[in-house]
Amino acid sequence: MSLCRTRLQEERKQWRKDHPFGFYAKPVKAADGSLDLTQWTAGIPGRSNTLWQGATYPVTIYFPEEYPSKPPRVKFPAGFYHPNIYPSGTVCLSILNESQDWRPAITLKQIVIGIQELLDSPNPNSPAQEPAWKAYSKDKAAYEKKVREQAKKYANAM
């Protein structure tokens, strides 16, 4: 409905005016040259001085028709290695959860910064996948190795 459309165009405008360094976010382009405002692709850079640095991780953001009453869904590629990300790639994060901390006032910029923060600060109490969660809580060395390998995969072009 209207609120969803006007808000998404506003998000696009605000993002163009000002967005955090190293991030990108844009609506998906359809074959006919138009943009679908309800589906965005975004890139989240790993913070420097963390295991995640040197790479930009791709996510897809899906906005429901009831947005901004309801939060968007954010997905990494399936199989993304992180304790709080489901095998399907869906991010488990309180600000993206309608019955937890989602508020209509939360902007796209805050969402992507929140996810960047989550990368290096996993929440061990909310496991979403077995491999990364297990390694994170029981075998830090193996966990770090995997995360570094993943960072190589999504490494920024030099």
């Binding site: 808000r7 506003e10 605000q14 901004p68 709080n84 488990c92 994060l93 309180s94 600000i95 937890q100 901390d101 209509p104 006032a105 939360i106 902007t107 910029k109 805050q110 929140g114 923060e117 989550l118 600060s121 929440n123 109490n125 909310s126």
Partner: peptide, 13 residues
């Protein structure tokens, strides 16, 4: 509708 930046968002899950 569009809060100022810098607001703290809890990541508690």
């Amino acid at each position: 509708d569009m809060p100022e930046q810098g607001e703290v968002i809890s990541l508690d899950d």
